[in-house]
């Protein structure tokens, strides 16, 4: 009796999360298989005919292969933003943890401010236009980096504090210059946090809808989330195509999860110090 409680609770939790996560996904897949008329009903029924292939072709070729461009844009955006985020956040975390100075409180305040204060869109656009970065992909990369940097720094900072300082010092004695210390000794040791950062930030940036909408107007510049607009309009929405599109752009984040899920690296620093 005393054992039944946790088991029942566990099963209930699994069932509920399965419902919450799998049912919408099943709905997406089913609808992607339907033809336009059946999909318009938006109900949970088995497809009357299987139209996935025709739906796929139509989604991909719509508006002069816009989805392909969008995938390329989104990939560039995600990969470059996440790379910059990882490197910069780890660097800031490293310096904050290692080099105590009177600037630290100010930097920490700015990090917290970056987390708490919502970005203002119009002044940002004005600034980007002034810099000639508005509507440019690299401009958006900078935006994503700026918006997400505080969170990444916070992830890194606590972990860096646990890496013994003697490791840096041993490297310095071995002849490492500051960049060697960071890239060859510290950054590899941060891998567990880096994985977390890559997963969280790449999914976030890939799925970002609002920032590309504000800062990256124009068909040539579309990112994947914006292609969802292709099949919606006020009077006429092709739900079968919309859900096929959703299905397609859900795949990359899914792959990221599956790939890095296996990379749970624990205790990388085990053995660095006494044991």
């Amino acid at each position: 009796m005393s054992k039944a409680g946790p088991i029942v609770g566990g099963i209930a939790a699994i069932v509920i999360s399965a419902l919450v996560f799998l049912v919408p996904f099943a709905f997406i897949i089913l609808t992607a298989f339907k033809d336009r008329a059946q999909a318009a009903a938006l109900d949970f029924t088995w497809p009357a005919s299987f139209n996935l292939w025709t739906n796929l072709v139509e989604v991909v070729t719509t508006r002069n292969w816009m989805l392909v461009t969008a995938f390329i844009n989104s990939t560039i955006l995600t990969v470059s933003s996440v790379t910059l985020l990882v490197v910069f956040a780890a660097m800031v975390g490293f310096i904050l943890a290692r080099r105590k100075s009177r600037w630290n409180p100010l930097v920490e305040f700015l990090i917290l401010a970056g987390l708490m204060i919502p970005p203002a869109v119009v002044p940002t656009i004005w600034l980007m236009q002034g810099l000639g970065l508005f509507g440019k992909l690299h401009g958006l990369v900078l935006i994503e980096v700026a918006y997400n940097l505080p969170f990444s720094i916070i992830l890194y900072r606590a972990f860096i504090a646990t890496i013994p300082r003697e490791l840096d010092e041993a490297a310095i004695i071995d002849g490492a210059r500051p960049l060697d210390v960071f890239f060859r000794v510290i950054l590899p040791l941060l891998w567990p946090v880096t994985v977390t950062n890559i997963v969280v930030q790449s999914v976030g940036i890939f799925n970002d809808f609002t920032n590309p909408l504000y800062y990256l107007p124009g068909n040539q510049n579309a990112t994947v989330q914006l292609t969802l607009y292709n099949f919606q309009s006020q009077f006429n929405t092709s739900y079968n195509l919309l859900f096929t599109n959703i299905l397609l752009i859900t795949i990359p984040p899914l792959i990221v999860f599956l790939f890095f899920n296996r990379q749970i690296v624990a205790g990388m620093t085990a053995g660095a110090v006494k044991g």
């Binding site: 003697e166 041993a170 490297a171 071995d174 490492a176 060859r184 990388m268 660095a272 110090v273």
Partner: peptide, 24 residues
């Protein structure tokens, strides 16, 4: 210098630990 808590680079093999300075 040899440190009290060894300060070996955990992500490198012994060979690379010993050779790190030479590599640099």
């Amino acid at each position: 210098m040899v440190f009290q808590n060894y300060a070996l680079y955990p992500h490198m093999t012994v060979y690379d630990n010993v050779g790190f300075g030479l590599k640099l």
